[in-house]
Design a protein around this nucleic acid. Sequence first.
RNA 1: GGACACUUAGUUCAGCGGGAGAACGCUUCCUUCACACGGAAGAGGUCACAGGUUCGAUCCCUGUAGUGUCCACCA
Length: 864
Amino acid sequence: MLEKRYDPHKVEEGKYETWKSKGYFTAGDKSKQAFSMVIPPPNVTGKLHIGHTCQTTIQDIVARYKKMQGYDVLWLPGMDHAGIATQAKVMEKLRNNGVDVTKITREEFLKAAWGWKDEYANNIHSQWAKMGLSLDYTRERFTLDDGLNYAVRTVFVSLYNKGLIYQGERIINWDPVQMTALSNIEVIHQNDPGQMFYFKYNVVGEKDYLIVATTRPETMFGDVCVVVNPKDKRYKKYVGKKVINPANGEQIPVIADEYVDISFGTGAMKCTPAHDPNDFIIGEKYHFEKPIIFNKDATMNEKCGKYQGLDRFECRKVLVENIKKDGNFIKIENIVHPVGHSERSHAVVEPMLSKQWFVKMRPLADQALANQKTNGKVDFVPKRFEKTFIQWMENAEDWCISRQLWWGHRIPAYYNKHTGEVVVSMDPPKDMENYEQESDVLDTWFSSALWPFSTLGWPNKTEDFERYFPTDTMVTAYDIIFFWVSRMIFQSLEMNHVRPFKEVVIHGLVRDELGRKMSKSLGNGVDPIEVIDKYGADALRYFLTTNAAPGQDMRYIEEKVIASSNYLNKIWNSARYVLSVLPEKFEPKEVNVKELSPLDQWIINRLEKTIKAVTLNMEKYDFNAASSHLYNFVYDDFCSEYLEMSKVSLSSDDEKVKNVTYQTLFKCLKDIILLIYPYTPFIAEELYLNLPVHLESIMLETYPKYDAHLVHSIVDKQVEVLFSIIRDVRNYKIENKLAPNASLDLSLNLRIKMFDGYQTYLERFTFSKVKEVDDSIVNMRGELKIYDNADLLIVNEAGKEDILKRIDKEISEEENEILRCQKMLSNPNFIAKAPKEKVKLEEEKLKTHQENLALLKEKKEKLS
RNA sequence: GGACACUUAGUUCAGCGGGAGAACGCUUCCUUCACACGGAAGAGGUCACAGGUUCGAUCCCUGUAGUGUCCACCA
């Protein structure tokens, strides 16, 4: 017997361990069709946040749903080493432990990092368990494990040999705190307050000068020229002359190039080829030197004379003061301008010329774009996110993949110590003593991009790879389409000539109650484990997956988690009722529609309709819509109507009536449990195991399937009239301040054949006596209610005036409806152009309303 | 500058070419034998604004305003 109150903690305890130990999460049943997903591997940097919970719950819903539909489901778990992020955290930990991290060796650091990884992997495992994720742990992977390293090297060598990976001198984003290069998308541009400095550049040998504006005076040590627009009349006379750089007194030429915007600043731009991407292009075009003026920690280097060793911002201050002293200072403007910051260290990123490894994007991106026009394309759900992907692919620039870190896949390139020749190969050269391996590692996303196939054993043609690749579905958030989704797609197309997944389901972000992004600095993050401890995993899972339209952001609102929990309690208690009334030796049978009473048939109709709608929306990954169909069925149809009615059926002396009711109650309850199960597996399992007949676990069950043969909607009208009458009698009592159980005399004029015994239900729920009468109902004293197929008269002694007032109200309502119908039907364009069914429907409505009006008028006449 | 969303009840959000929906909150009543984490009844909305398409627009199109996100970025 179930307890009166649903207690999520009791319900959730132990279930996960049982599922896991029974091997229910393990894929491999070859008698079934395969369905596969890989988890987006969380970073081993810390605890999982509520966004992870949302994402993995969506996947768990898909996995459990597909498994119930008879697929051999593989949901492969794993984690990401998260290069920069993890290295930063491990370094910080070491520093806090008093370790001098400047003296630590690569090997010592890696040892500490692996220790960190083990610790955090444990945390993540326990979080996954609490959430109830049906992950196949026998196949778990890590982006830095040996197998994946083999895959990474394979791809690197292959791309290198095809000329798609190259080493080059480019302006990259340098993070001077982490002391590593960053790819463009690891840089966050934010509008910071800054200053625009205006300086005099004196023309050599003349008394004239140019004014040049800059936001970064410290880069003046790397300037090679001043550029003006050739069409700029103000500066034409200076082109070809030399000016004096006020920072170091060097003479630099004035050149003309279209790039310069005449209207911006002073129209004269200083050019620093080694520290600005656009200046770099100009430097290349006109064959200038590209002097680098920063050290790796963004202090000034030996090219900066007396400023050598100063921090870049300190240098800026001192330099400006000195230029003032020299009389070359014009003015300072306070401005707000976009400044790039490192995603991880938040340091101001310094554009810096540097030798790095790049992936040549154009051919790969074009391939991905071309593939989207074929049948083998990746389907985005919702569809609009395909545009984000396409936009990214169309604008992709070469991807800087080398990182000056230790925590990551070391680039398989070897430099000959004597000749400097570069060898790229899977394994070190045989005469390794003559070589030195590249010390850089690869961008984390390089290994993440291979995740859907590297985890399955690729490049080996393993059984898993053959069976589960390409995967079926990828679930991820829209903010990661650039970083990850696009890279998985082009890497898989390049290496496997096939998409990595058939569909990618994009979900929104979980925001805080005020709609703000959750972040550490705001301290507005929600710890899923705390929520689970309070309300249970099921309530959290249900809340997170059913409260937003697909791809739309949602807010975390605690009240809504409570509402979810209340819903589960409702299901719990309806189950408690059903289980308490079922006879001890209950045996479920297939529904035989011939035996069903109209009430049973009605609820079966509703149930089948619900199964159909839920399944349709599950297929579309629209969990909001799917769950709402089920919710309405549970509350309105099952609990409010059928369950109450069943109390009357079960008080019958007729064993047949009772048996059919048992069967119907059981079927409804079981299907509700099965339909809610993917969302809330714990409570579903608990209720399932309490059913009088069940398998070892709900995980072995089959998803309910819509069965058209069970639907006979012919009874719906009878049942709906019955419900309407009950509702109206109750309302009548409230309006007239009568007790809910007051007995009234009801007269009924039926225009359809009602089912046998309907009166019993009517009397039980209205506490009243029911008499069938004929058309003479209009002659009788009392309140008249009109339905499509019946008229109800509540016999009463109320004053004539009251009754007339009510009748007048109803008359005017009917008249309004008639007017609306007539207006539509009198429009010749409506008749001519609207679909015929619509016209017919309106005509029928009009007829009904006119009949009702006639009855009301007749009644009114009789009364007065 | 470019792209993509969003604007519907007090709040948070669904939805839809043909009479506006849910949850929470609010008001009134009810501890009746599944559930007070409940039940019954109810109040509450010119569906941002302006045009257009259409027989008909909250829904489709265009524009405007506001909000949010992403990409790019000017020395």
